[in-house]
């Protein structure tokens, strides 16, 4: 069976396979996403959702299969090139443990810009703009340990968006939050992504979080199933 990624997709993957030792994480998964699209990746624990996300983001190299971003094959890129891609084109939000505890919130948000070589002042100015948008600008001087989970997660979203990424990867972004805070984070995240026409790959096992997506892809036993196209 030959699989072709749908035309016009920003990021597409075909027939991804990845094993960690004896454990098969991906067993022929496909994926594609268009600019401005929010796609939920769902599935039971251990089904390979996170691995799919890591492969798509170029964090993990799949054993086989192809991933194209904007027409470029990720497999042919060097580690440094993929890192640079992640710095400039992608944004990331994880469940927890992602904010550097020593840095203040605004420094955390500014970090990706600074990694790209933006001056500290400019980076922090841009960071503050995003923090305002995510309604956490009053936390700028606080350290991550001093803010609540929801606030921290919104800071993380601001950090993910500060570079103006084309693709935002969110791995269980509300996993550690209660429903109200989760909703708030999701609302702000999707709104911000839509306003910048960024694609969002949203890994979640929560239906109400997935409900913020445009469509969902179900991963089960390392295989993906695109529900919209299946019907």
């Amino acid at each position: 069976m030959t699989r072709v990624s749908p035309p016009g997709s920003l990021l597409a993957a075909q027939d991804l396979r990845k094993a960690y030792g004896p454990t098969t994480a991906l067993d022929g998964a496909d994926f594609s996403i268009h600019p401005g699209e929010v796609v939920a990746v769902m599935g039971p624990s251990g089904s390979g959702k996170s691995t799919l996300l890591h492969c798509l983001a170029g964090i993990v190299t799949p054993d086989s299969g192809s991933i194209t971003y904007n027409g470029h094959e990720l497999a042919t890129m060097s580690d440094a090139q993929r890192s640079a891609l992640r710095r400039s084109e992608f944004g990331f939000v994880f469940q927890f443990g992602q904010l550097v505890p020593e840095l203040t919130c605004v420094e955390n948000v500014a970090l990706p810009l600074r990694l790209n070589g933006t001056s500290r002042k400019e980076a922090e100015r841009a960071a503050l703009r995003w923090m305002e948008r995510l309604e956490v600008d009053d936390l700028r001087k606080k350290r991550p340990g001093e803010v609540s989970g929801g606030q921290g997660q919104r800071v993380a979203v601001a950090r993910a968006l500060v570079t103006g990424p084309r693709v935002l990867f969110a791995d269980e972004p509300t996993g550690a939050l209660d429903s109200l805070n989760g909703e708030r984070v999701m609302g702000l995240l999707t709104e911000a992504a839509r306003s910048t026409n960024a694609a969002v790959v949203l890994v979640t096992h929560e239906a109400r979080v997935a409900a913020y997506s445009d469509r969902e892809v179900v991963v089960r036993d390392g295989r993906s199933r695109d529900m919209e196209r299946a019907i």
Partner: peptide, 16 residues
């Protein structure tokens, strides 16, 4: 560990 991994995820150079 987790923090380091997430820093790497968003493109921090190992050298940094």
């Amino acid at each position: 560990r987790k923090l380091l991994s997430s820093l790497i995820a968003f493109g921090t150079r190992r050298r940094t």
